[in-house]
Simulated assay, not measured.
Amino acid sequence: MEQEVGNFHLVNRIKDTNFSIDDLTHYNLSLLVGRNDFQFCVIDTRENKCLLLEDYELEGIHSTNVLINTLYKLFEGHHLLMAGYWKSVKLAMKNQKFTMIPSHLFSHEHLRDYLKLSTEVDSELDDFYYYQHTHSEAVCVFAAERKIIEKVRSIYPTLTVQVVHHASAFIEGIQSHRDFTYYKDLYINIGRNNFSLVVTEDNKLLLYNRFPYQKSEDIVKYTMLTMQEMNMSQQDTKTIVWGNISADSLHFKELYRYIKNISFGARPSYLNFAYMFDEVADHQYFDLYSIYVCE
């Protein structure tokens, strides 16, 4: 029986002329996997410099098996992704199977119990992970489909693939970026079908949440509810937006109607970029870049 495979197409590809296949042992490979897209970037760990970025949109992904088959087809046709001699490989998962636990309440023996309180998980299909955030007294507990992790690890059998959640990448990226105030700040990352909200105060994490959306009104609704819950001013709160959005998009225009101190975020300050990366807006791919700072 033929395996079912979804469609994928390349949205963006940027390559630094200094990229060399002979230097892969000095490069970190960061992978970002979701149901709607797959992205990866390559960073030279000697210079903290991003050398390569590729962004693929996925379609027709209605099950884990289809996602695995689609990713494997994409990997098999890509000479770099099948290379096994990277310095390190980090895999970030985009899904709703996560929760944040205060460090003083966390026990690694109860990962599934934490997740059962906020989302649906299946011990027969999922593996459970956690990530201790270095700048906050918080632990991200999450689940990932076992077959996806096993498939990726099978491609890099001589390496220890670090698995994190998209939430941790975004949070660590913000807190390593050094673009914060001592007040409550709001950070938004807009993906193709989901968006994330982070609230910090004095660079300490107060809130993280991730929402699905279909239209701009959904983004505005969940953002306003979050600001109300956190007692944040629509006039004064510093609000930074990253992601799949532009200044003339309806998403940004609708947010601007309600939030006055809003602007686009910059590239992460902990990475270097050559002029080739000027092809994409500075506020794009912040979450992908930020996988690199997850330790």
Rank of each mutant, 00 (worst) to 15 (best):
E2M: 05
Q3F: 11
E4C: 00
E4H: 07
N7C: 08
L10K: 10
V11H: 01
V11A: 00
R13A: 08
R13D: 02
N18R: 06
S20R: 08
L24G: 00
N28P: 00
N28S: 15
L29T: 06
L32T: 02
C41F: 05
V42Q: 09
R46S: 13
L51R: 08
L53S: 02
D55C: 03
L58T: 05
I61L: 00
N65V: 03
N69E: 14
T70L: 01
Y72E: 13
L74E: 06
F75P: 02
E76I: 00
G77F: 08
G77Q: 07
G77K: 06
G77D: 09
H78Y: 09
H78M: 04
H79P: 14
A83T: 15
G84T: 13
G84N: 13
W86M: 06
K87F: 11
K87S: 14
S88W: 05
K90Y: 01
L91E: 03
K94L: 12
N95Y: 04
F98M: 02
P102N: 12
H104P: 01
L105Y: 15
Y114S: 05
L115K: 07
L115S: 04
D122P: 05
E124W: 01
E124T: 13
Y129W: 10
Y130K: 08
Q132H: 15
T134E: 15
H135E: 12
H135V: 03
H135Y: 15
V139M: 11
F142G: 02
F142V: 03
A143D: 01
K147V: 12
K147E: 15
E150P: 05
P157Y: 06
L159F: 06
V161S: 02
A169I: 03
F170Y: 14
I171S: 07
Q175Y: 12
D179S: 13
Y182K: 14
Y183E: 15
D185Q: 09
L186K: 04
N189R: 04
L197F: 07
V198Y: 04
V199N: 02
T200Q: 08
T200L: 10
L206M: 13
L207R: 01
Y208R: 02
N209H: 00
F211Q: 02
F211R: 04
K215Q: 13
S216C: 05
M224W: 01
T226L: 08
M227E: 05
E229W: 06
N231H: 14
Q234I: 12
K238N: 15
K238Y: 13
N244W: 13
D248A: 09
L250W: 07
F252V: 10
F252K: 08
K253H: 14
R257E: 14
N261V: 06
F264S: 00
G265T: 03
Y270R: 08
F273T: 04
F273P: 12
F273V: 07
D278Y: 03
V280S: 10
H283T: 03
F286M: 10
D287K: 09
V293S: 03
E295G: 12
